[in-house]
Design a protein around this nucleic acid. Structure first.
Length: 159
DNA sequence: GCCAACGTTGGC
DNA sequence: GCCAACGTTGGC
């Protein structure tokens, strides 16, 4: 059996936060319009894969909890909706350009494992995509060891 | 609000 | 196929 893959997915809390995910339980991850991020969802994600839920573009950016992949990939319906911010007129229903998965709530950390705290321990993470300068990917794979380190930081209150 | 870094687009 | 211009991301 192939090893389970671990992921990190970013969301702006003003758009969609871990608290809203906790309330709704499962959310279609619409709106990804980057091919690399799409390919991770389309080709590499498996139902049940764990996801680090990351708050970006906010006062304290960082990992705030755990989610999981809750569906197989399917076409993002917002690409066909002319009223949606994510509408893509070049995408055809018979050949959808943008794919996504559903994301399910797992748990919320007691505190945020902040980007600042992760940067301070960058040497323990090795080559961590999130910490690469200029990184803008909103969906990225995380090594199992990196995932575990963030969980242990969460347990230790971010320290 | 600023701006560096990046991905995408389109002219050539 | 190159690359300048543009729009977006996201930390600060």
């Amino acid at each position: 059996m192939a090893a389970m893959k671990h992921w990190l997915m970013k969301s702006e809390p003003e758009e969609f936060s871990i608290d809203v995910l906790e309330r709704v339980g499962t959310e279609p991850w619409t709106g990804v319009r980057n091919y690399q991020a799409r390919n991770f969802m389309l080709k590499d994600m498996k139902v049940g894969d764990p996801i680090l839920f990351y708050h970006s573009n906010c006062a304290v950016p960082g990992v705030v909890g755990i989610a999981k992949v809750a569906s197989k990939p399917y076409p993002d319906p917002t690409q066909f909706d002319p009223d949606s911010d994510y509408h893509d007129p070049k995408s055809k229903p018979e050949d959808p350009r943008w794919w996504m998965v559903d994301v399910g709530f797992e748990r919320k950390f007691d505190g945020t494992v902040s980007l600042e705290q992760m940067k301070a321990r960058a040497d323990e993470f090795g080559d961590f995509t999130l910490l690469r300068r200029g990184n803008r990917l909103s969906v990225m794979p995380v090594e199992a060891a990196q995932y575990k380190r963030i969980l242990s930081m969460a347990k230790a209150g971010g320290r």
